[in-house]
Design a protein around this nucleic acid. Structure first.
Lengths: 218, 218, 218, 218
DNA sequence: GATGAATGAGCTTTCATTCAT
DNA sequence: AATGAATGAAAGCTCATTCAT
């Protein structure tokens, strides 16, 4: 019943002229998504905003979804690049400092294109197999999982998969909510402190305790 | 630029027959939203699924947005009812138990109609001024804020607004992610423990410490 | 690869208003087909010619092919009605008279809407399973086959299936070619004589011969 | 109203390389016509199938119609070559043998590229002034007319124009129908016998009769 | 009130054709 | 000569919405 969607770009714009055209189109797509929202975004508006004929647009992208998918990929790639490079940098730092860096880079990543981020988050139907941000989260979880493995004895948690999931989801959610709903929070320096504290306290062995945290009473 | 939207239902539908029709329409709307996604949802499909003529549908709702808005209101009201009643119940409980109850009720609330929840979360453009879930979160934050006020001396946080925001956002995000992406997590009882732990450790005074948590070193 | 085409009409226009709309649309379709040819026929032109909105057109027909299919059905039905009623009438006539009637009715049938007939014949891609005229031919062959069965002993042919196929195809082709390419032929009365003669001489026992025609030497 | 069409190829392509390119393009056109049908045939697809840039294609053919016209010409030329050479060969043969040869060569001619033949027959709008096959038929009629002139005293028909028209149209139609709709008929040797019989009996003086056939009674 | 036929703006997409390189 | 990126008119079709019955 549901129309099958081919989300892969149409041809690999190799010449510099077409490379440029593709870029112009993607930038226009992002602009229109922000300005109009997903629903009111149309291929005609995109082509017009890009200063490109509708025919050219369709030479590179088979449909609207493919355009949005390309924008998503471009944007999540940018976010992931930041996160990955931070992950490398903090591998040897102690837990608290790393947590702080995780928070910092998440805020930075959400700051790349906050309005676009909002549209992609709130309105874009899942394209292909994965919703926007899921792949960012998934890779971030893998990176954090690896970090936790190395720092296992500073931790009071058993299930590292779960811990990584919780840490990343929490930081992502708080950052996300701050960016979208309380942008003034980001200015206050203790916002970073507090979010870091959430993660650090969750993961670390409390002072004067044994590594294994006593199970909370039910 | 953007078309002005009248999102209020058309008539109060006080008579019981009308009340019924409205319900039928809203249930059909939810069903179609789940089955087809926001984009492929059309008023004609809804009318057909509801067994109501398109004309009748427009007698009760002035446009498509109003339909979706009504579904959102209905669904968030149901969630809020759960949360509010829990809030009343736990007002006198100690912090940890309350946190646990907050987690529990959030999971419960997300379980009311998970597929609809997903569509409303991921695809529905903001209706009126507010995005779906924002009003749930906002009221939950107010309730938690009130609780924290009462329990202030069990806490190690200064800024109760921020603390409430963090607590609610975190629990909501973890619950949400679990429901949508890791539903098996919900079965494992220690998921609740862990999420409770995140909140409790963030808020509570660590053993053998003074109330005021020492600022984490940067 | 090839797009699947749904050629069935969309809804069964029961009310008299819609019945009328459907008729108007089909008449316009035939008109545009004749005026513009199949390729230049577009649903928009049809709607405009019908004095109907494009939306109304699509309420009854899912696509251009379905429109053309409906026109074909309507036209071939009209042809078949003529042919069938003639078949009934000539069942008891002797071979030559029947042949003459077959020729006559074929000319009549081709005269119903000769220009439309040309477009449907020459330009319309096969729709559904059967090309235009094939179903007419097929039923005509069945009718002639039945006739031959009854008049078997006036014939010099063995294979009645083949004989019916040859008789119908020949008459159809000659009529068709005359209508489309030599319309003046139709005015000359001996055209009917000659075509009748082709069929009659092929089928009938030559004077002074036994029923079984001697096989022509190879 | 209808766009004026220039159907003549663009340059004579006398150089051997150009000649080759033109051939490649025409073969690709035929291939695509068969594979996709006339409607879905596009110049871009043809260029791609030919391994030639769309620009080059337009260097040799001014538009799509010219391409199709060239394919038609090529194909009808091939058919006519066969028919013409047979006509030369049978000029001195008696009527029945000639008729048989006419049938045989028509079947052979229809077998040159049956799928292409079908597309050209059923879907291709008339190009220039003439429909596909009309020119084949017209020349075949001229050839048969000449034959009949020579063999006039073996015939029982007066109007040689009409007789030639009837003979050619009949054989063409039967062969055509057999190829397209009953290909198994072609395998049965008595199919040729029967078709020959149709023509021969129509044209020849019945045994024991005077040359002038008595007018069939109405 | 209820119905559903009708509307038409506007969307996605194709494709013959041009033209700068 | 060849290339293929670019063009844009125009096609097919959907769907929110209206309104005569």
């Amino acid at each position: 019943m549901a129309k099958k969607l081919n989300v892969t770009p149409r041809k690999q714009a190799l010449q510099s002229r077409s490379r440029e055209t593709v870029d112009v189109i993607l930038e226009a797509t992002a602009r229109i998504l922000v300005k109009e929202g997903y629903d009111r975004t149309s291929t005609n508006k995109i082509a017009q905003a890009a200063g490109v004929s509708i025919g050219s647009l369709y030479q590179y992208f088979p449909n609207k979804e493919a355009l949005v998918a390309a924008v998503i990929t471009k944007h999540t790639d940018a976010m992931m690049e930041l996160i990955r490079s931070t992950a490398l940098r903090v591998a040897q730092l102690p837990l608290e400092a790393s947590a702080r860096e995780l928070v910092r880079v998440m805020i930075e990543a959400h700051g790349i294109a906050p309005k676009l981020h909002r549209v992609l988050t709130e309105q874009t139907p899942r394209v292909g197999k994965t919703a926007y941000m899921e792949k960012v989260d998934d890779e971030a979880i893998r990176l954090v999982r690896a970090y936790l493995e190395i720092h296992r004895d500073e931790l009071c948690v058993d299930d590292l998969d779960l811990a990584a999931f919780i840490a990343v989801t929490t930081v992502e959610a708080l950052t996300h909510a701050a960016v979208l709903r309380q942008p003034d929070l980001l200015a206050q320096p203790h916002f970073v402190d507090e979010v870091t504290s959430v993660v650090f306290r969750y993961l670390s062995v409390p002072d004067g305790k044994s590594r294994k945290r006593t199970r909370l009473s039910a």
